[in-house]
Design a protein around this nucleic acid. Sequence first.
DNA 1: GGACAGGGTTACG
DNA 2: CGTAACCCTGTC
Length: 285
Amino acid sequence: MKIQVKDFHAEKICHSGQCFRMEPINDTRLHFSLIAHGKYLEIRQETDGINVSCTEDDWDNIWKDYFDCDTDYGEIYDIVDASDPYLVKAVEFGSGIRILKQELFETIICFIISQQNNINRIRKCVRELCGRYGEERKNERGESYHVFPSPERLAACTEEELRDCNLGYRSKYIVKTSQMIAEGNIRLEQIRSMPYAEAREELMKLSGVGIKVAECICLFALHHVDAFPIDTHIQAVLQQHYPEGFPFSRYQGYAGILQQYAFYFDIYGKRQNSLSPLLFGKNDL
DNA sequence: GGACAGGGTTACG
DNA sequence: CGTAACCCTGTC
């Protein structure tokens, strides 16, 4: 099914570090698979939108919102301070990145895994976790895929079992956090309806969730767009380009999105950076 | 081939 | 409140 949508760059989204179950198909740069909400989706990049492998119903009920398609990301360019060359460049470089609305439990676990870790390895860990503990299903072509495991399933794992997924010391956090959620001590339903500050505070009660991970969960699952996770990259950016402080008040309602663009620019924008398997550019579709 | 770092958090002192 | 320790793998 063909979807007309502006400012949608599948490849950049895939590598932006906010999601870990979207992958290139056959190392292409235009064709991607994604597993979420128990479903398998393929996305093909077109010049004026994307082609998706789902029914119209699923697009309307699931994916449209998942990709935040009701938000006009073109607005971002208009509100960025034209006299801030760093941000102008970052936003230009990251154009087409959207902030996804991912599932809460999955996002919690993925970002616990993300600490002291890099994107490729996070992907590998998550793939392993899903392969072992996620329910198996078949896509339209009869190929099997695994959905993200339930809190109950992960709560039943021992720390040692999870270590086999190369999770290291994070295994303990994942068992504990899954147990807290499965036993109902922390209620995800409630967190979903909380305002940003409250949700962040509640998330930090989970084992292995500190301020940075909580901010990531707020931004990439709960769509609190003022969340502003500060990792080592962003820390360096703030020090280098905003010694007087980042103008948060100017960018209310956009801080998280700008953070994501800055993060992406910092990782891939410098060409000599070996992390970058590809050279992205503005006209690089 | 060993050392180091990779989107931090916890548990100490 | 600052800082070591946590685990593993890809990279140089």
